[in-house]
């Protein structure tokens, strides 16, 4: 069983990584990006109860002051019409955050987790064509040597 937890920054706080990406998009000569928010996705394998998932999400994976989380498939800050780019590691590529997450879960006394994977979701608002979004994903976000990406429109 896979438990998917998404963590994102409180809407009223600056997403510094997002701001950085907007600058890089300008460097690409792509216009129209209005806002970028990053979402960290963690997928935990193994038998995790709903209560345990809530604890993992609120005590380990997110910060109660600066972040929000959702458990399941739906993402947080997605606004209708926004582009969603998800960047995943290719198989076999070291995922250090996933390893640390498993350590944290074990420290919490939760025994069922057998594996974990992390990926990054980028929620991009603005008038941008699909080919430009692909360009952004390929040139700025995912390196095909180690990562793959998918693009969807919400």
């Amino acid at each position: 069983m896979t438990t998917r937890i998404e963590v994102y920054i409180r809407e009223d706080l600056v997403d510094a990584a997002g701001e950085g990406l907007i600058k890089d998009i300008e460097d690409l000569n792509v216009k129209g990006a209005k806002s970028v928010r990053f979402v960290r996705v963690t997928e935990i394998e193994g038998g995790i109860s709903k209560g345990e998932a809530r604890r993992i999400a609120s005590e380990l994976l997110s910060d109660p002051v600066s972040q929000r989380h959702v458990i399941g498939e739906v993402s947080g800050p997605v606004v209708d019409g926004a582009w969603v780019i998800e960047v995943k590691f290719n198989k076999g590529v070291t995922d250090t955050v996933a390893d640390t997450t498993l350590k944290g879960i074990a420290d919490m006394g939760i025994a069922g987790a057998t594996g974990a994977k992390t990926s990054t979701k980028v929620v991009l608002r603005g008038k941008i064509s699909k080919s430009d979004v692909e360009n952004i994903a390929r040139r700025l976000l995912a390196n095909s040597v180690i990562q793959s990406f998918s693009i969807a429109k919400s």
Partner: peptide
């Protein structure tokens, strides 16, 4: 090179 030698790329874990 990107495809033939992707094995040559390593990811670090400083900790």
């Amino acid at each position: 090179s990107e495809t033939t030698s992707s094995g040559a790329v390593q990811i670090g874990n400083p900790i």
